[in-house]
Amino acid sequence: MTGFWSKFIPKRQPRLDKHPFVLGLHNVYVLPGRWGISFVVLVFLLSIISTNYNNNLGFLLTFLLTVLGLASAIHGQRNLAGLSLTPGKVDAVFLGEPLAYPLQLENASFSARYAITAITSNGDKYAVAQAVPHSITPILLYAIPSRRGRHSIGTLVVESRYPFGLFRLWTRFTFAWHGLVYPAPAPDSKPLPISSDEQGAGAGNVAGDDDLTGFRRYQTGDPIKHLHWKSYAKGRGLHTRIYLQGSPKFLWVDFNMADEADVEAKISRLCRWVLDAEHMGIDYGLRLPGLEIAPHRGASHLEACLTALALLTITR
């Protein structure tokens, strides 16, 4: 949120759990910007010249500009009024990747709306040149999260200086709008903690480098070491080598198995393992302090595991 006036506007904004957020008279601020203030000075100058020369056409010009300036506020207000904003579904990302919040700008009216800018709390601006009548314009707001877990885009500002730039019209709102940030997978590949029996905790076999079972397309989280550079160099795209030894029924990814000292590093390691296990097509279960997810496979299981890792809090 920028601007001189922001100092005087209370920051407190109601969280909007109900969408869409419809812009109207009651939630749009209208205040002159720097050009607006210069314009006032200009009009004052014109009025002085008109007075000095007793020039009635000059007065007419001055008064027209005065009213024009005021009318522009109403036109600016009309430009925003009736637009509705709906938060879209946010896809989860791994830590380090940008989260995309799709904000749907809907113009259900018969008139086009112009020059609307969405501003995120970190100051990034996303301009919409025109919202045509009866349309929904998606605006992708990006945020780069710094922590795993639930990320909130925070307070958003939608502003416009239409039509003459004299007034800045803006509205602030905060949706209950979150994106999930999975932990970043550990970059290096440690072997999967594979155990052949159910109780086998920690005594897992290690996947050797020579036990190549096949290739598949590169997916986020794959260790760089396993990339198949030859095929990449041939222009066939990025592929990962898959290694497997033996054929265990399932494995447990256990919080205590990761030997990293730092908690976050441990979580990253677990994330890596979960991804690797999923990629290899092994059933895997997740054991975290206070939480256990039964071994399984598939997209929804993976999501459940990653979500558990993302939201894991360790209290000491």
Partner: peptide
């Protein structure tokens, strides 16, 4: 917009206080 502003501008023209120039 100018057309919309005209009536109010004319009212201002008629009623706003005037100083008789020249100021300098």
């Amino acid at each position: 917009i100018i057309f919309q502003s005209l009536p109010l501008a004319l009212l201002l023209f008629l009623f706003s206080p005037r100083i008789t120039g020249p100021l300098w």
